[in-house]
């Protein structure tokens, strides 16, 4: 009797929990190429997304865990990657022992826009743009959330008092974000002729960032399917052997 009451209570509780967790901004639901057990990265979208990162995001946001060579994973050739890396200079020590600069190599990490946190804060009114290397893993809601922030700008509702230099964003917790709206329609010109709407740009850059956060995702799922099939088969035959072994007991 008592157990039943408690369980009923628990059931109500479980049903109520998600409702409580979801009060800040509703997550948009985007059909990502990379979701699901067989999902892969849409290479073209990721390449367009890299263009957006390069032309827009990288002015403030670092990508410091990633390497230029990682770009081969979204379908760029080794020569293209080398050219992209070479267009950036990175600090080094010259033969005379003094600080110098050299063109980056594919084996280099992405160059950060600021040399350190203090420099970033000094340049950006005290705000620190987060590193984007694992951004889709580091936010509740993942890719959908990042997409939601990028497309969630707008006018604050009447009566809402905005902090100085803050921008209204319906997805961001607290709805006040220091980053001004980064993407506008036609912010970039896509080489493949895709129309650069805001949704398209957000979709593409999130695809790229999801790849950067999980560069081995395709391999992981590919191996995973085989492992699950193998284990299912092994479970089946092991159970059959078990039945045989136990047949003289039951």
């Amino acid at each position: 009797m008592r157990a039943a009451t408690t369980l009923a209570l628990l059931g109500t509780l479980l049903a109520a929990a998600p409702a409580l967790a979801q009060e800040e901004g509703k997550l948009p639901h985007v059909n990502w190429s990379f979701s699901g057990p067989f999902g892969t990265y849409d290479r073209a979208a990721a390449q367009r997304g890299f263009q957006i990162y390069k032309e827009v995001c990288s002015n403030c946001h670092s990508l410091k865990e990633a390497y230029y060579r990682d770009l081969e994973g979204i379908g760029l050739s080794a020569a293209q990657v080398k050219a992209i890396a070479a267009s950036v200079t990175v600090p080094t020590i010259g033969d005379d022992g003094q600080p110098a600069e050299r063109p980056a190599l594919p084996s280099d990490h992405f160059k950060s826009p600021f040399p350190n946190e203090k420099a970033a804060r000094a340049a950006l009114n005290g705000a620190l743009p987060p590193d984007l290397s694992v951004i889709t893993l580091a936010r509740e809601g993942g890719a959908d959330y990042v997409y939601g922030v990028l497309t969630g700008y707008g006018e604050p509702p009447a009566g809402m008092k905005m902090g100085e230099g803050m921008n209204y964003n319906k997805m961001f917790p607290g709805h006040q974000i220091a980053m001004p709206q980064p993407l506008q329609p036609d912010q970039v010109t896509y080489a493949d002729g895709t129309k650069a709407t805001l949704d398209q740009e957000a979709h593409d850059v999130v695809t790229f960032l999801e790849y950067v956060a999980n560069p081995h995702m395709e391999e992981r799922k590919r191996i995973g399917v085989k492992v699950i099939l193998f284990l299912a088969m092994l479970t089946g035959i092991t159970y059959a052997v078990k039945r045989k072994v136990w047949s003289d007991v039951h």
Partner: peptide
């Protein structure tokens, strides 16, 4: 079912070794 059981055991053992 001795023969069948032994074959099954062999297959299971081999699969486990692969695992």
């Amino acid at each position: 079912d001795e023969g069948k059981r032994d074959f099954l055991k062999l297959v299971t053992g081999a699969a486990a070794a692969i695992g």
